[in-house]
Nucleic acid binder design. Structure first.
Lengths: 101, 101
DNA sequence: GCTATACTTCGATTGTTGTCAAACGATCCA
DNA sequence: TGGATCGTTTGACAACAATCGAAGTATAGC
């Protein structure tokens, strides 16, 4: 599995940015999916129960990544996303649990 | 202390709406002030360290109230705001602590 | 190389939000 | 009763955000 797309370092994750990223129904939905597993998940539209185009989902993955909520891995033509559990727990303890429960 | 302005019932508080309300630096700041005390606090602009007009602060109080984060009491010409700790803790345990810490 | 695949980026559109000044409404008090 | 005070509402505006289709980029596999 190849390179990781740029993302903020743990200490640079800002609460307002995180909350802005969380405050969208589509992003909340895909984050809940991510939260179900510990391994990275595919970025593909088909994997998620959201009524948007691939372009829009791609936009949401970017928002999540730039806010510091997820890591995106590139592997060939495929992309994988993973929740940054440890970083978020270190920075804002309990936040993810409270939001995604 | 007189009437209470309309606000959503505990069961009607929605996570997306709450997160949208939280996702603003001014609102986070005033919520942190509210979180410091248990009694209601004045709505007055002078009480808060924010660089906006009274009209804008009034708008923010309304967003917070309509999202279910605060209760507003009207007493004469004065208004008082209070965090809905119990309702929020019941609905989204740990959320407020995680955000306002 | 060529073509199909998997996603992203671009440009445009539309709706939402934060902000202010000005006007308003309610209350207190002299 | 008439001002002054406290805060809200209204209307306007600019900035931002979600969305899409279309074009673009990188990769895989033939």
């Amino acid at each position: 599995m190849a390179r990781t797309l740029p993302q903020p370092a743990r200490e640079s994750i800002e609460i307002v940015t995180v909350l802005q990223a969380l405050a969208d129904p589509v992003r909340l939905e895909v984050l809940r999916e991510l939260a179900k597993v510990t391994e990275p998940r595919s970025c593909s539209l088909e994997e998620y129960d959201v009524d948007i185009t691939a372009a829009t989902l791609s936009h949401h993955w970017r928002v999540l990544r730039e806010a510091g909520l997820t890591t995106t891995f590139v592997d060939g033509r495929r992309r994988w996303v993973e929740l940054r559990r440890d970083d978020l727990q270190a920075r804002f303890p309990g936040l993810l649990d409270a939001v995604l429960r």
